[in-house]
Design a protein around this nucleic acid. Sequence first.
DNA 1: CGGTTGACTGTTT
DNA 2: TAAACAGCCAACC
Length: 109
Amino acid sequence: MAKSTGGEGGSTFHERVWGAVQRIPPGRVASYKLVGIVAGYPRSARFVGRAMAMSKGTPLPWHRVVASDGRIVIRDPALAKEQIRRLRAEGVPVSREGRVDYARFEWEP
DNA sequence: CGGTTGACTGTTT
DNA sequence: TAAACAGCCAACC
């Protein structure tokens, strides 16, 4: 007990964000802001996206992270396409426009 | 130590 | 509805 931070227990911002993303259950999605809140940085939504960009090549379920409207805001179409594909594989319906029903599939920590 | 940057978000035009 | 603007914050050079 008495573990410091009481959360992701990381050192850098990215490690905490990664820890928060790993906590997202399958079949659910979380917004960048929500991940930031869980990570302990409620105002760093932008940086959460930055951390995700670094996550390329890591076992991180970054595909469960979408914008606050449930829309995919990734600038790389190839990467966004992969996210849609993974979300559908997890049981999350994604529209052709790259949008999910965030109101229904939002992760509630 | 300061300016730049971004897988964001919310408001306004 | 889409586009533009502004606020925010930590890592990077």
